[in-house]
Design a protein around this nucleic acid. Structure first.
Lengths: 119, 119
DNA sequence: CTGAATCCTTTACGATACTG
DNA sequence: CAGTATCGTAAAGGATTCAG
């Protein structure tokens, strides 16, 4: 992504938010993050059930990207039938914590426009 | 977006983060938000210069969506040549504040993988 | 069970030209 | 100056099938 030019900044100001947005930019990533949050290690099928609507392909590719970004740890046990468990790295936990104020903001606006949304 | 099913939640848990992600989901929205942050009201052309790379069409549509989401306030002065000024609403300011920890996280990982990125 | 492979659809975004 | 209108593209995601 690009950086921002603000009059005060002689050079491009590294706001950092763009980096974070790239990491959580996928359609389901924050949901996966949330699913992994403060829970035990989760298996693939478990995650698939926890994030209803996601397809296997997208779940798999998102998990791979998140692993590459260093926020998800993948542990594969050499068994049959195969067993793979996913968890958060330290960076993933910190990311999740950093997401909490944003979640609070979202809950706030949900309540504010809540009265209508419920038939 | 969907909500999350965690074993503990009997019903879909409203994590709120999905709501926030929809609001800031556009490719340039956080940058626009950042540009509007703690500054004076900004004019359209000013924003276009502050967010290099964005096209007029996308800037306009993003601004309209952000206004509809209640985070941006648009004031149009009936002059010629036309003058329009954009600023953040209270909700917009709170959203920006809620984004700060995420930005800090981004800066942190930038530094961590920083040493290589500089030729 | 955990995926990879393939094909298809959607849509957000980009480029350009034009207008009150 | 502050946009709108059109058109085109690329990338993300969805549906389905197959495999170790």
């Amino acid at each position: 992504m690009a950086t921002l030019n603000r009059p005060g900044d002689g050079d491009g100001h590294l706001c950092g938010i763009d980096t974070a947005m790239e990491v959580i930019g996928g359609k389901w990533k924050v949901l996966i993050l949330w699913a992994l949050h403060e829970g035990p290690e989760r298996r693939f099928g478990e995650l698939r059930r926890m994030v209803p609507g996601i397809t296997e392909k997208v779940l798999a590719s998102h998990l791979r990207e998140m692993e590459a970004d260093g926020i998800v740890r993948r542990v594969s046990y050499d068994e049959v039938p195969p067993r793979v468990e996913y968890g958060l790295t330290k960076a993933g936990v910190r990311l999740n914590d950093a997401l909490e104020p944003l979640a609070a903001w979202g809950r706030e606006v949900q309540e504010r426009r809540g009265p209508e949304g419920a038939p």
